[in-house]
Each structure stands twice: as structure tokens, then as C-alpha cells.
């Protein structure tokens, strides 16, 4: 079996020594000296946080070597995650939970995957997309369901069987406002009537 050539960069000597011993203990891996780093199939980086120095090193490495990176770190924010992904990080391992087995498995899979992001990282990117939409919509009184909070309130009460007058009383609106809200939502979503609107909202998990 061909050995996977691995380069290691840790932010402190103790981590460097510890992780190196993990990697060297496995016959399927070859730990490269720092002078051989350009030949690495996978780069393992260990740091407390993604500081600007670490990011600069990752960017350099992505540009010069382009190998997938297994990152071991304590915590990471959403914007740091995006930066890490940009720098070819394909696996993020929490420092407290990293074991020799998990690290080796991640390194081997990174070598095999050739830089394609694994499902858990893709999942985090999809969460970023959801969060982004919420951040834009919420301050505008909107949400991703396509309904305003007021429309959701009215539809919920309609689903509870309340008529226009009762909904107006419950929400302290005029009957005209309630009718406008119902007209607006049925017209916009091309729904036939009130029952259709309630059914649509329930089915779509909006209320």
C-alpha cells in the first residue's frame, strides 16, 4: 500500500510532538520534515484559534501546495469556517476530542478525497446559507417561509377555527386589516380560498 505523505504544522512544540507521534505510529502514513512540505499529500494543522498568522500560513500553503488540510482547533466561528474552507480545509477536528484513530482516518480520507469536502462540512456551509437568509430577512419583519409574522399569526388563528372578527379581536387589528392580510397571502401564493391557505401553510410547516 502506498504511504500517504503528511506534513504537520502545530502552534506549539508540545502539540507538534504529540501529533507527530500519532502520525508516525501508523505504517500507512509518512510524516515529512518541514523542508519536504511541498511534497505533502495532506497537511495537518493544529492551533488554538484561527489567528491571522494561521490564516496567512493556510493561504500560502493553499496557493503553493494545494493539498487538503485537516485542521485541529479548539473552536471556530462561522466566518473562520468560510476562511478555512477557502484554504482547502476538508476536516475540522476539535482539539479535546481528537484521537489517533480519528486523526488518521481523517488524513487518509482527505488523501483519498482529493479536496472534496465531506458531508459534515457541506452541512455547515448549508447552515451558513440558512443563517445568512435569516440575518437579512428577520430585521425586515420577514422570514424564509415567505410569510410575514402577521400573516403567520392570522393563519394560525384561522387554523384554530377563528373567524375574521375573532381573529381581529385576538390580534387587536381591525377586521379590514385581517381581511387584507388574508387577501394578500392568498393572492400572493395563488391560493383559492382561506381553507386552501391554511392547508398550504400547514403542509409547508409554516404554521
Amino acid at each position: 500500500m502506498e504511504q500517504v505523505r503528511v506534513a504537520l504544522q502545530a502552534s506549539d512544540p508540545l502539540s507538534q510532538a504529540g501529533i507527530a507521534s500519532y502520525l508516525q505510529s501508523r505504517p500507512e502514513l509518512t510524516l515529512l520534515r518541514s523542508s519536504e512540505r511541498a511534497e505533502a499529500k495532506v497537511l495537518v494543522v493544529s492551533c488554538d484559534r484561527l489567528t491571522s498568522d494561521v490564516v496567512a500560513m493556510l493561504r500560502r500553503s493553499a496557493a503553493e501546495i494545494g493539498s487538503p488540510v485537516v485542521l485541529i482547533t479548539n473552536e471556530i466561528t462561522e466566518s473562520e469556517l468560510l476562511t478555512a474552507v477557502e484554504c482547502r480545509v476538508v476536516a475540522i477536528l476539535p482539539r479535546v476530542a481528537v484521537t489517533a484513530e480519528r486523526l488518521v482516518h481523517s488524513v487518509l480520507t482527505a488523501a483519498k478525497g482529493g479536496g472534496v469536502m465531506p458531508p459534515n462540512l457541506v452541512g455547515e456551509l448549508l447552515k451558513h446559507i440558512e443563517r445568512l437568509q435569516r440575518d437579512v430577512l428577520t430585521p425586515n419583519g420577514l422570514n424564509a417561509s415567505g410569510l410575514t409574522p402577521r400573516e403567520i399569526d392570522v393563519l394560525r388563528l384561522m387554523a384554530d377555527g377563528l373567524d375574521t372578527n375573532e381573529i381581529a379581536g385576538e390580534l387587536c387589528y381591525s377586521e379590514r386589516t385581517v381581511k387584507n392580510v388574508i387577501y394578500g397571502v392568498t393572492h400572493r401564493l395563488k391560493l383559492r380560498n382561506r381553507s386552501h391557505a391554511v392547508a398550504y401553510a400547514l403542509r409547508a410547516g409554516m404554521i
Binding site: 471556530i76 476536516a91 481523517s106 478525497g113 447552515k127
Partner: peptide, 11 residues
């Protein structure tokens, strides 16, 4: 095309 990495997310 997809790699299978079970890197435990810390996010």
C-alpha cells in the same frame, strides 16, 4: 466524487 471523512464537527 465524494470523500467520506468523519471529522467530528466542532461548529
Amino acid at each position: 466524487d465524494r470523500a467520506e471523512i468523519d471529522g467530528q464537527s466542532i461548529l
